[in-house]
Design a protein around this nucleic acid. Sequence first.
DNA 1: GAATAATACTTCTATTATAGAAGTAAGTTA
DNA 2: TAACTTACTTCTATAATAGAAGTATTATTC
Lengths: 149, 149
Amino acid sequence: MVSKVEHRDRTGCPIACALDIIGDHWTLLIIRNLMFLGLHEYKEMLETEEQISSNILTIRLKMLQQAGLIASASHPESKRRKLYYLTPTGKDLVHVMVPLVLWSRRNLREHLRIPNDIDHLLETDPQAFLQETLQRLSDWEDNNLKSLV
Amino acid sequence: MVSKVEHRDRTGCPIACALDIIGDHWTLLIIRNLMFLGLHEYKEMLETEEQISSNILTIRLKMLQQAGLIASASHPESKRRKLYYLTPTGKDLVHVMVPLVLWSRRNLREHLRIPNDIDHLLETDPQAFLQETLQRLSDWEDNNLKSLV
DNA sequence: GAATAATACTTCTATTATAGAAGTAAGTTA
DNA sequence: TAACTTACTTCTATAATAGAAGTATTATTC
């Protein structure tokens, strides 16, 4: 069905088309890194617990840029560093990612290690968690991309 | 990271743990078949547009049963047929699947072919679409699993 | 009641993707 | 200017997938 890593149109089904982009072992972890963990650099993503291979990380970052979910900019502090960040389309996945976290929390409880404060917020006010996430991304953009100043 | 198709605990991250189950090209399509398309048999799933291989379908159905997202029962009309259906954990994914459909609708518009009536409902009242989906699943169970009668 | 067909798999092989190790090129620091 | 960092690239072995073909059980047709 899907040959090569590249995104191909499948069948017009909204689930199938979404999976052409995010339906593999690594892509949503990269989205997670950018959305929840504040990891915006190649090197940081290489160092996460899940231990992605450098070649796979490169391929996925390129694919996500082509698909329009992420973009990159050069690091203000160094030309050899690069910053990756979510585009509006990528950020819009927050409405899928937060429900996925909530599903895991309800159904895979025993396997999870969620920081207490976040777990409590997910329990009491998941919408607030979503809004905080978007606010954090917006703040990061203000601090790191508006280098026009 | 993930060797073999089997689910392995990863890191305690709710996204990573969820991806150990649903993070591949095919698994969410099987969930879609059961949740939205009313396909409950092996043969029906082989015949979808996406053309899954029979060996992969078998492996995924077994994995999903072990993970507790689906279950199976023998078909009331024939011993050689088998019915697959979503467990409560599987049905709970409706809260991820509907947002994923909505994300696709907002961001991949040009690639999609969504039936007009459903598209309109997604536009005007997505919560109603979600409730209708759950009701349909419940009705199906009443008609097909309560063969105690 | 024997031959045919349908259903849910299983097996096999070729192709493709991934993991892991090692290297490279450009920019930075000591 | 020598060592180091960062973001890749390349290579090879292993694992997963696609596609074709087969099997076992149950049902249907003649």
